[in-house]
Design a protein around this nucleic acid. Structure first.
Length: 513
RNA sequence: GGCGGCGUAGCUCAGUGGUAGAGCAGGGGAAUCAUAAUCCCUUGGUCGGCGGUUCAAAUCCGUCCGCCGCUACCA
């Protein structure tokens, strides 16, 4: 039976250009989605843009364009970024689309019908100049009793009608959810924060606004638009065709994993399951928070001017090299630092020296000493059997890591085999066997081709373009490139194309003094 | 303040009770098929400090120090 697998990126807020963090989250999900496709699963990979809210309304106004036009432009830049990064989504949801508004409004109605929404008023200190409510802890109180926002703007106590969601009623059910499903929140650190947050007690959540218009209209009350998270989170349902239960994508709900940045994990682990519980819908199986990137040891920020453009990096170093680095460098879930030096080191040591050179030295011997013809498997020695067994185990190891979203650990295991293959070729020394025992040389080269095939097959999700070329050079047909195909050895006798280096060493150009 | 995370070799990190590990960097050697890539050996740590539990602690408990995050309606 085909397994279904549904994965989502966060939807990106259209209030700025995509940077390396957006690329990272997209690529991580893409690697996982591609792995599942390669493993024969029926995958739905969802991404999109969050386009409502006061900030978008304001930014559009500042540029003198209608909000929709503003949102169109930025949303397109996120789609372009994903195209540039070879991220293959199955659905890209824009929250300004009609289908999404329908989904969000239906969800609202379901929650309202269950009695979990009521009309009251939201009150707090409001800055008219900033057009936002300011939290108590951000307020400066002056000797004369007046209060100001961090921006220095004066504050006034404002009461605004608002619909509320009875979040307070879900405390126990949420805690039970976390307890009964230990993997619901990952990794461990954020999980504890969420649990202790919920244990502190939940207040009802204001889920509508009347102070701005740029949002999804609340069903039955056109004065209100939905609060961002009710609107945004519903995109995951839009992606499966909700509310049309006959939609073929509907079988992809619930999602297997929502991948999110750690800054929005609370909304996904508390609000989202509570909304779904209230609406009587199945809950996602997992929410996973990834870390952030620093740049050369510093926090990435516009003011520091060190915001990394993923396209520029891909143009300079190569897309697959960038994808590899991002997935390799960081234990998924942790923070990590981006530095040119470590990127170049990984490219040269792991891609050029370890993997690229292994393929090149193997294939050039096949080309020169066997006239490019792939030999049949010969009689296996103990050493042959050992490395082939290690290779045979690799799909399972990799699959288990990907299942846990440990995509850097999967690479680590793949590299252990690559290093072992380099040790094997040195032990067997086919360049010596060439004179002493040509038949044995052919056996050794065949073992190496099989090992490299395994490696290249499993690396496809990470480096799709380069691994396609490597599999071409190994004589692997298009329909032999999925994981299950690894169980069937290639037939001997195929003529392999002339090998070409796939991972050139990167030499940093001399800096002008 | 409360809650939580982190602190292990020069660097990045793995390791949750039983003789300190990996990769990179450093040193020595081998090989020459290959993108001067590879392979082997090796230097290097009182596992943040102190105290405790235990036959045994990086690993459990307490305390202190340092760094970081969360502490709801901007996303």
């Amino acid at each position: 039976m085909t397994r279904r697998f549904t994965i989502t990126t966060p939807i990106f807020y259209v209030n700025g250009a995509p940077h390396i963090g957006h690329a990272y989250t997209s690529i991580a999900c893409d690697v996982i989605a591609r792995f599942h496709r390669l493993d024969g699963n029926d995958v739905l990979f969802v991404s999109g843009t969050d386009e409502h809210g006061q900030k978008v309304e304001q930014s559009a106004k500042a540029q003198n364009v209608p909000p929709q036009e503003f949102a169109d432009r930025i949303s397109q830049s996120f789609r372009q970024m994903q195209t540039d990064m070879a991220v293959q989504t199955d659905e890209f949801i824009r929250t300004t689309e009609t289908r999404h508004k329908k989904a969000a409004q239906t969800l609202w109605k379901k929650v309202a019908e269950s009695g979990h929404i009521y009309l009251d008023a939201y009150e707090g200190w409001y800055s008219t100049r900033d057009e936002m409510f300011v939290g108590e802890d951000e307020i400066t109180t002056h000797p004369d009793g007046s209060r100001t926002a961090p921006s220095g703007a004066p504050l006034e106590w404002v009461r605004e009608p608002s619909y509320f969601f009875r979040l307070s009623e879900f405390q126990d059910r949420l805690l039970r959810l976390y307890e009964e499903n230990p993997d619901f929140i990952g990794p461990h650190g954020p999980k504890r924060e969420i649990i202790s947050f919920v244990k502190q007690g939940l207040r009802d959540l204001s889920i509508s606004r009347t102070s701005f218009r740029w949002g999804v209209e609340v069903p039955g009350d056109p004065d209100h638009v939905m609060y961002v998270w009710f609107d945004a989170l519903a995109n995951y349902l839009t992606a499966v065709g909700y509310p049309d239960l006959e939609d073929p994508r509907h079988v992809h709900w619930p999602a297997d994993v929502h991948v999110v940045g750690k800054e929005i994990i609370r909304f996904h682990c508390i609000y989202w399951p509570a909304f779904l519980m209230a609406a009587g819908l199945p809950l996602p199986k997992r929410v996973f928070a990834h870390g952030w990137w620093t740049v050369e040891g510093e926090k990435m920020s516009k003011s520091l001017g060190n915001v990394l453009d993923p396209k520029k990096l891909a143009d300079e170093f190569g897309l697959d090299q960038l994808r590899f680095f991002l997935m390799r460098e960081v234990p998924f879930g942790g923070d990590s630092n981006f530095s040119r030096r470590s990127l170049i080191t990984r490219m040269n040591v792991e891609l050029a020296n370890d993997l690229g050179n292994l393929a090149q030295r193997t294939l050039s011997q096949v080309a020169r000493n066997l006239e490019g013809v792939l030999p049949e498997r010969g009689t296996l020695t103990e050493d042959d059997g050992k490395i082939l067994a290690q290779a045979a185990l690799l799909p399972t190891l990799t699959r288990n890591h990907v299942e846990q979203l440990a995509i850097s650990d999967a690479l680590e295991d793949i590299w252990k085999l690559i290093r072992e293959a380099n040790a094997y070729i040195d032990r067997q020394a086919p360049w010596i066997l060439k004179k002493e025992n040509p038949a044995r040389m052919a056996d050794v080269l065949r073992v190496l081709v099989d090992v490299i095939r395994t490696v290249a097959t499993l690396l496809q999700p990470y480096m799709p373009d380069t691994m396609e070329k490597m599999l071409d050079q190994l004589g692997v047909e298009k329909d032999e490139r999925h994981i299950a195909a690894l169980e069937t050895p290639l037939p001997g006798g195929r003529v392999l194309p002339k090998p070409q280096g796939l991972f050139p060493r990167f030499v940093e150009e001399e800096k002008q003094a």
